[in-house]
């Protein structure tokens, strides 16, 4: 510090005052400023903008109508049939997909954690679905389940489960279930990966201690594995739920929300409202509702998992 001030005295270096600030505790904030600014621009601004357009009329094809409309979109949402269907479908789609993915992911993680010969190769194979972009996975499954050429239909018919090829996505009774299975296939490696990391972090000694104490496999699972993975599970579920609620791409590829809205979810509805109706205001309101649903979900979920931990 002394040396800095000496230099500034003798030569009045242009950066000397900066050098002096760098010795104070404000320097930290100054260094953080650019990233905070960036964060604000990238995160806060779009979010706020989303809120703003949700209380405005913003229909690209009717520029004349633009203006403040307050809660109008939210009120009309209450009587919007498709909104309620989408809400219900979103809940089913997310809950079912997360549960199946978590179960499959856990089984995969436990299997991979055994360090048996070949697990390394198997580990890569198991992750493959997750590497596929949603759109690619969607088209692939659309083909696998295709009512004319689909391999899966062929297998099921040969095994005698089906009498003829079934159009899985054309029947409102099977469309949502079929899309959930595709999503589960695509998403379970996410859980497998996180669970595997979590499992690796559980000290072997705990299981040994439990074995000496006389705990069986189920007790070990319940009292060691699950609690030790709790943070991982919480984080994984929240991340997955957020991404499932927010990404319409798989459904867009597989069914486009059909048949007859039977696979319509909020994200897809908002997407279609924005980019087919060009009704950005209403789409914004839908997104805000999704935002709050996710916020409430995350808060409750985190609180619940903490309560049970204490």
């Amino acid at each position: 510090m002394r040396r800095v001030s000496m230099t500034s005295n003798s030569r009045r270096h242009p950066f000397s005052s900066l050098g002096e600030i760098s010795e104070t505790r404000y320097w930290v904030y100054l260094l953080l400023l650019p990233s905070l600014l960036l964060l604000f621009l990238v995160v806060a601004y779009p979010t706020i903008y989303g809120f703003v357009i949700s209380v405005r009329e913003m229909r690209l094809t009717r520029p004349g109508l633009n203006g403040w409309v307050g809660m109008k979109h939210y009120i009309s949402m209450m009587s919007d049939r498709v909104f309620w269907i989408s809400l219900k479908n979103t809940a089913i789609w997310v809950a079912a997909a997360v549960m199946i993915e978590m179960t499959l992911g856990f089984i995969a993680a436990v299997a991979l954690n055994r360090n048996l010969p070949g697990t390394r190769l198997f580990g890569v194979l198991i992750l493959l679905p997750y590497f596929l972009p949603n759109v690619v996975a969607g088209h692939m499954w659309a083909l696998l389940l295709d009512p004319r050429l689909g391999v899966i239909n062929d297998i099921l018919v040969r095994l005698g489960f089906l009498s003829s090829y079934k159009a899985w996505f054309a029947d409102p009774n099977t469309a949502l279930a079929a899309t959930i299975l595709v999503e589960a296939w695509h998403g379970f490696p996410f859980f497998a990966l996180l669970f595997l990391a979590g499992l690796k972090g559980i000290p072997e000694d705990l299981y040994k201690a439990a074995a000496v104490d006389g705990a069986g496999s189920f007790t070990k699972f319940k009292l060691i594995t699950v609690p030790m993975l709790k943070t991982v599970i919480t984080a994984a579920v929240i991340l997955r739920v957020i991404s499932l609620v927010n990404s319409p791409d798989l459904l867009l590829v597989l069914t486009g929300g059909g048949p007859g809205n039977s696979t319509q979810v909020l994200s897809l509805y908002a997407f279609q409202t924005a980019y087919r109706d060009f009704n950005f205001g209403y789409a914004g309101a839908l997104s805000v509702v999704m935002f709050f649903i996710l916020m409430v979900f995350a808060t409750i979920y985190i609180r619940l998992s903490r309560i049970t931990k204490e």
Partner: peptide
């Protein structure tokens, strides 16, 4: 029309 009609694009 084929049974897959409702989803056929």
């Amino acid at each position: 029309a084929p049974p897959s009609t409702p989803n056929d694009s």
